[in-house]
Design a binder for these strands. Structure first.
Lengths: 268, 268
DNA sequence: CGACGCCTTGATCAACTTCAAATTTTGTGG
DNA sequence: CCACAAAATTTGAAGTTGATCAAGGCGTCG
């Protein structure tokens, strides 16, 4: 992953590990003194695959690590500087899409920080990865990561866990695509975002404001609908008071339980 | 898994390991002399997770192994004789389904021999397992298998591989459910069966006869359609000469490439 | 035979798509 | 900051696909 847009003209900036500054909050507990600086503020060290590594292993891995930034709609590849690589998502949302020869398209998954991107020990699965929002990645050469996987079974295990989670999500989505109406699909999507983006609480527990990481056309590709239908169902939900549309990318959910009900019930 | 139909009245027969006979062809190369008899003819020893075990490990596992038979439509549980368990599919097809509270249903995956059923190291994923055809299982207590997984990293690895394969299939199916027309869906289903059931060749490479493991209602639940639509699209394909319907459960595919085209193209 | 389960076929209907156009938002250059 | 062009979204009207409702056929099992 990293460096993009097939053609070559890309505005992604690759930042050598050493030169990082803005996102790295270097002050931390003393316990972190042996954690590589580049890793200290990284979510992947807690919830991601890197959490399985000792500080020594982390140090070795970090020596080959490269961070990079990518802008919206950029295609992400598992290559960096001619090396095959894997990445962790540091921030942003990545969409996994499948394309048919006649142009029909389906988003088959979304990945959020601190997900791991790539498929060690597995052949291609014919999905393309695209930045849905601006995205920052932390990438390592395949070989280095694979060595690490061999010596840290826990890391393999975490990867397995993530893959199982993806399988659960894919199956949940099969139900959504196969059996839900257009409104239910849109409600399900908003709910998915609400549960994956760290929610911004708004006084009480129920009301929250969401930043949609996808534009209408992407939502449509995710839900197997058209942009027009997505738009119509959003206004449908708005008129029923289930959501408020603050601006096209931001939605307020006054009562998440009502939204949840809307994602599983046909009637009004 | 094993023993079924929630209620209790079930015609599944549990057969203690020692007493197996019919499906076990005991003659085998001398190399197999140290392979447990119960495992000798088992596909799971080659393509399944058991393939990662040494004959010693296999022997230990087989001591706690129980084979069982289940009939069509029986619900399969991860329990046997009050023990939680995992299973390998010896023969038959198992459907994984999701159910909504209002009765809508979606099949989210099919499993064929010698797939492993169960989710070591993972919480529930809210799917129910049902025998689509008559099914034979080989089950082990959870604890025994989990111990085995700990001492045989290769077995974990195979399990991971199978899960990745399931993820690929689920994502492929997301494309089918989200973006294909009814005919394309039905064609895709037949193609899926053709590639998963060991095909019965018919002279040349292209023509083959398939036994459908699902009835129309199940196919509909798999494709997110109604039985009526499935039926209509099958006759549609028949009239176009892409399939021949020998009897409701058996279909002949004269040219698999035409079927493949039908699964991805809209027109006639 | 007769009942039941399963599948097919037909007619009508509703949901979603398609086509078309208006409106809002965003980006760019002066 | 404004003007203007391009992109994204919304809205409307008409068209299609697949669902729903309703019969009828076929095969199996008692």
């Amino acid at each position: 992953m990293v460096l993009g847009k097939a053609g070559g003209l890309s505005d992604s900036r690759a930042i050598k590990a050493a030169g990082i500054s803005n996102t790295m909050t270097e002050r931390k507990d003393i316990h972190n003194s042996d954690i590589p600086i580049i890793c200290q503020a990284c979510e992947a060290r807690h919830k991601g695959v890197c959490g399985a590594l000792t500080s020594d292993q982390l140090t070795r891995l970090s020596r080959h690590t490269t961070k990079s930034a990518h802008s919206r709609e950029e295609e992400l590849h598992n290559t960096f500087e001619d090396q095959e690589s894997y990445s962790n998502i540091l921030s942003g949302v990545v969409k996994l899409t499948k394309l048919m020869s006649d142009g029909r398209q389906q988003i088959v998954g979304l990945q959020f920080a601190p997900d791991f991107m790539g498929r060690p020990f597995s052949e291609q699965n014919q999905v393309t990865m695209e930045a849905a929002t601006n995205v920052r990645l932390c990438s390592f050469p395949k070989s280095v990561l694979e060595d690490m996987l061999h010596e840290a079974p826990d890391m393999q295990h975490r990867l397995h866990q993530q893959n199982l989670e993806e399988l659960n999500e894919a199956r949940e989505w099969l139900l959504t695509l196969g059996r839900k109406s257009a409104v239910e699909k849109v409600a399900s999507f908003i709910l998915l975002i609400a549960t994956n983006i760290d929610p911004e609480y708004n006084g009480d527990d129920q009301s929250r404001v969401l930043e949609l990481p996808l534009r209408r056309a992407d939502i449509a590709d995710f839900l197997g609908l058209t942009t027009e239908t997505v738009s119509r169902q959003l206004t449908n939900l708005r008129k029923r008071g289930i959501i408020e549309i603050e601006d096209r990318r931001t939605i307020k959910v006054p009562d998440i339980n009502r939204l949840d009900r809307a994602s599983r019930h046909v009637g009004s």
